[in-house]
Design a protein around this nucleic acid. Structure first.
Length: 284
DNA sequence: TCCGGCACCTGTACGC
DNA sequence: TGCGTACAGGTGCCGG
């Protein structure tokens, strides 16, 4: 599932291969892939054709390609999206949604998405971050991220700490996997009410988040299957380093207590019952 | 304004 | 073998 490290690996791949290339053709194979482009698929293709890509950028889990027109090709990988830069003769993927060819033939950009939670749109981006994602917070690896601002905002919330970690307007880039891993490292239970967390605990959590994200980034991201891959189609290796996620019943690597799986927000949360004691007053 | 619940979507695993 | 069901989960919308 693409979270910050996976999206950053993809961004770096796009940044290596796309700037300076001019889009020759755009073919939308599945309209749902461009549902966020209000003017429709035909307009999507028309406004991109002939445009030159200048840079590949990221905010949280969103990616965008800055164009010479001042607009941006904004994308989100959702659960299963892939942006691949491949040889034009390579056979189409089963779930190919959008194909971009360039004026210099040889390689093309493909948006592939099995579950179609992801999507692409062309949006204004004159002032840096595209308008539709202006509400997305910076991520903890962004030099402009404010630790003090995050700590204060979390303490003002009345919710559980995991919900806060997953709220992209508070801190971006964290999904279900890295939220669980970070909370385990910090020794915090996901249901701890945000209002009861001390500044020290929150700073420790931020430290854990950064460690987890950086380690995953250096490993090339996390992958359980073929759903997440870099622009070259390669899978990451961080899944071999996961401490709790997906390890229900297996011993905690710190204390050997069996890892517990709970239903949470229509998904799963994995905790060590000993390292992450459940608060007396839990907040979902 | 803040918070929680749910729809969206498809492939896979599993039970019967 | 084939069918039905549960599950995976990021985001945005809606209701309280």
């Amino acid at each position: 599932m693409p979270e910050l490290p996976e999206v950053e690996v993809v961004r770096r791949g796009l940044e290596r291969t796309l700037p300076g290339r001019t889009i020759a053709t755009v073919a939308v194979a599945h309209p749902r892939a461009v549902r966020r482009h209000a003017a429709g698929a035909a307009d999507f293709a028309a406004v991109l054709t002939g445009r030159t890509i200048e840079a590949a950028c990221r905010r949280g889990k969103y990616l965008w390609l800055a164009l010479d027109s001042g607009a941006a090709l904004l994308g989100h990988l959702g659960m299963s999206g892939q942006l691949l830069v491949v040889a034009t003769e390579k056979p189409d993927e089963t779930h190919l949604r959008v194909r971009f060819t360039f004026s210099d033939a040889g390689r093309e950009l493909r948006f592939v998405d099995q579950r179609t939670f992801g999507g692409l749109a062309v949006v204004p981006a004159d002032a840096g971050v595209p308008a539709p994602i202006a509400h997305i917070a910076r991520d903890p690896l962004d030099p402009g991220f404010s630790d003090a601002g995050f700590v204060a905002a979390v303490r003002r919330r009345r919710t559980g700490i995991k919900r806060a970690l997953l709220d992209q307007t508070l801190v971006s880039g964290i999904g279900n996997i890295y939220a669980d891993e970070s909370l385990w490292r910090a020794g915090l239970h996901y249901a701890r009410p945000t209002g009861t967390l001390t500044r020290g605990e929150l700073n420790r959590l931020l430290q854990s988040v950064r460690e987890v994200l950086l380690e995953a980034l250096h490993a090339g991201g996390t992958s359980f299957d073929a759903l997440y891959v870099s622009v070259n189609g390669e899978s990451g290796l961080f899944d071999r380093s996961l401490a709790v996620y997906g390890r229900a019943g297996l011993p905690c690597t710190r204390c050997e207590t069996p890892i517990r799986r709970d239903a949470f927000m229509n998904r799963s949360s994995f905790t060590c019952p000993r390292c992450q004691p459940r608060p007396r007053k839990a907040h979902w």
